[in-house]
């Protein structure tokens, strides 16, 4: 598979919040995402609970199962082992923190079943 390593996870990357404030990716906090979504006119935050992590070492990926948002939608995604997800109150977390550190220089916690991640959806357009 064609694996994708987004540059914005590289330690030191500059991230702009909704209020215009600039922060380094490694310094982001839960509130930064929550407040940015509140200011945003069309995006809102969903809580996505990790319910499954299936390692796929041949591809350097993992199959992740999430239960997403108030409607508990079941979603399955394939992500690289080093891909950082932002866990409420915990920060950046991945399936293989050592690989995240090596790839991005970004300190990550170990992502585990039961962790609640920040994801986005579009606000209901009235």
């Amino acid at each position: 598979p064609q694996l994708h390593y987004p540059p914005h996870f590289m330690k030191g990357s500059i991230i702009q919040l909704s209020n215009g404030e600039l922060k380094r990716v490694e310094d982001l906090q839960t509130d930064d995402f929550v407040q940015s979504a509140e200011i945003s006119s069309d995006l809102k935050i969903d809580s996505s609970t990790v319910v499954k992590i299936e390692f796929n070492p041949d591809h350097s990926t993992a199959i992740l199962g999430f239960v997403v948002g108030e409607h508990k939608v079941q979603v399955t995604v394939e992500a690289t082992l080093e891909h950082p997800f932002f866990v409420f109150g915990q920060g950046w977390s991945s399936c293989e923190p050592d690989r995240s550190l090596h790839r991005y220089g970004l300190d990550c916690q170990k992502l585990s079943v039961g962790d609640v991640c920040i994801s986005l959806t579009h606000k209901d357009v009235q």
């Binding site: 987004p6 990357s13 996505s48 209901d124």
Partner: peptide, 19 residues
Amino acid sequence: VPVFPWHALVPFLTNTGPP
């Protein structure tokens, strides 16, 4: 120096509205 928007860092896992 590139500046990335905050919403690029977290995934969109569902589309809008209830199923």
